[in-house]
Amino acid sequence: MSKEGAGVDLDKSLGYLLKEASTALRVAMEEVLRPLGMTVTHYSCLELLAQRPGMSNSELARGAFVTRQSMNVLLQALERDGYVARPAEAAVGKVLPAQLTPRGRQSLEEASAAVRAVEVRMLAGMTENEQESAFRALRSMIHSLRGPA
Rank of each mutant, 00 (worst) to 15 (best):
M1H: 09
M1T: 07
M1S: 12
M1P: 01
M1D: 06
M1W: 08
S2C: 09
S2K: 12
K3V: 05
G5W: 11
G7R: 01
D11F: 05
L14F: 11
L14P: 01
L14R: 11
G15H: 04
Y16V: 05
Y16C: 04
L17Q: 12
L18C: 10
K19W: 03
A21E: 06
S22W: 07
S22G: 15
S22F: 07
A24R: 15
L25A: 08
L25M: 13
V27R: 09
V32Q: 00
R34L: 09
R34C: 08
L36Y: 02
G37F: 08
M38W: 01
M38R: 02
M38T: 03
V40S: 07
V40I: 08
V40T: 14
H42T: 08
H42Q: 09
H42I: 04
Y43G: 01
C45Q: 02
L46M: 13
L46W: 02
L49M: 07
A50H: 10
Q51M: 09
G54L: 10
G54R: 08
G54I: 11
S56P: 07
N57K: 06
S58R: 14
S58K: 15
L60V: 05
A61R: 01
T67Y: 11
T67C: 05
R68L: 03
R68G: 02
Q69M: 13
S70W: 02
S70V: 05
M71N: 01
M71L: 05
N72T: 04
V73A: 12
L74A: 03
L74N: 00
Q76A: 13
Q76M: 10
Q76L: 06
E79D: 12
R80F: 10
D81S: 07
A85N: 04
R86E: 02
R86Q: 08
P87M: 11
A88V: 09
A88H: 09
A88S: 12
A91S: 13
L96T: 04
A98R: 03
A98G: 09
Q99S: 15
Q99C: 08
P102R: 12
P102Y: 14
R103Y: 04
R103E: 10
G104A: 07
R105H: 13
Q106I: 03
Q106V: 04
S107T: 14
L108A: 10
L108C: 11
E109Q: 15
S112V: 01
S112E: 04
V115I: 11
A117W: 00
V118K: 00
V120R: 00
M122E: 02
L123S: 01
A124C: 08
T127Q: 07
E128K: 08
E130Y: 09
E130V: 12
A134N: 04
R136H: 15
L138A: 15
S140H: 15
M141D: 14
I142H: 10
L145E: 14
A149R: 15
